[in-house]
Design a protein around this nucleic acid. Sequence first.
DNA 1: ATGCAATCTCAAGTGAGGTTTAGATCAATA
DNA 2: TATTGATCTAAACCTCACTTGAGATTGCAT
Lengths: 156, 156
Amino acid sequence: MHRTDVIAIGELAARTGVAVSAIRFYEAKGLIASLRSSGGQRRFLRADIRRVSFILIAQQLGLSLEEIALELARLPAQRTPNAADWTRISTALRARIDARISALERTRELLDQCIGCGCLSLKKCGLYNVQDKAAQRGAGPRYLLGDRAGEIAEVR
Amino acid sequence: MHRTDVIAIGELAARTGVAVSAIRFYEAKGLIASLRSSGGQRRFLRADIRRVSFILIAQQLGLSLEEIALELARLPAQRTPNAADWTRISTALRARIDARISALERTRELLDQCIGCGCLSLKKCGLYNVQDKAAQRGAGPRYLLGDRAGEIAEVR
DNA sequence: ATGCAATCTCAAGTGAGGTTTAGATCAATA
DNA sequence: TATTGATCTAAACCTCACTTGAGATTGCAT
């Protein structure tokens, strides 16, 4: 039983290593919620420390704040997530990690083929016939291509 | 020996899958250079297809355009890079890929430990200290995220 | 010679993920 | 009680990596 069951924004910041401004930003984006003191200051539940921690971890795995918000929406807001909550969510993260590793391994394989021949075609040694075939894809926001690490940039 | 030894910006765009505007942007940032036609239109060398391909690959590996510019600055600008050039640079990329894979595997291991214990507690969870800043795509001050990822309580 | 797509420049806009600033108010200590 | 640090809101600003728009010019094909 803690003396204070809610914490101020500064303490949440200190406990998570996140700037106060970022916490307000996360709240504005709907990733966390706050109560208010009589004077209008934010008060957070202790469970929010873990929610913010989750945001940081998920960010490191490449999820956007929007994607993180979707995951967090499935967590209980009013209590500390329990083992079942965490298992569900961390299993989803694991799939994400696996996918990234696979993509990187594929890229590495393709690159290895290139290191020998000096081409960057990422195809089987197209050093002298780079000019074949026209291109496939038009423009588009690069961030949309994020999950396709191995497919990009094949010179055709 | 080719009929056209230089190509227009549209062809470079088509051959790399990058938008014309992005190519102009890369040139403005000094990642690639162009000749000009008598009328002032950009003309690129065929080698620039590979330079642009390199930009895309390096981006996938989490390098910023500024970092990529540094690598590209070590490539010959006025001739097609030879096998030795590409071997040096692609070997550097390979090291980068290896590092990212290792980091992700470490993260996965920590996550696996967490999927049974249900912890999301800062001090105990190794995930909290994982540094994989390059995992993100898209814009934003990623370097700040990375710099802060391991620190605790940077509050002003 | 004409038409039209491609290209040009320069400026401004976009979106993610925040930070900074300004001026005002709150809340815990001396 | 007075003060001082923490917090408040709103809006502006920031970087990165581009895209979009406007208005003018170029260059290839009929």
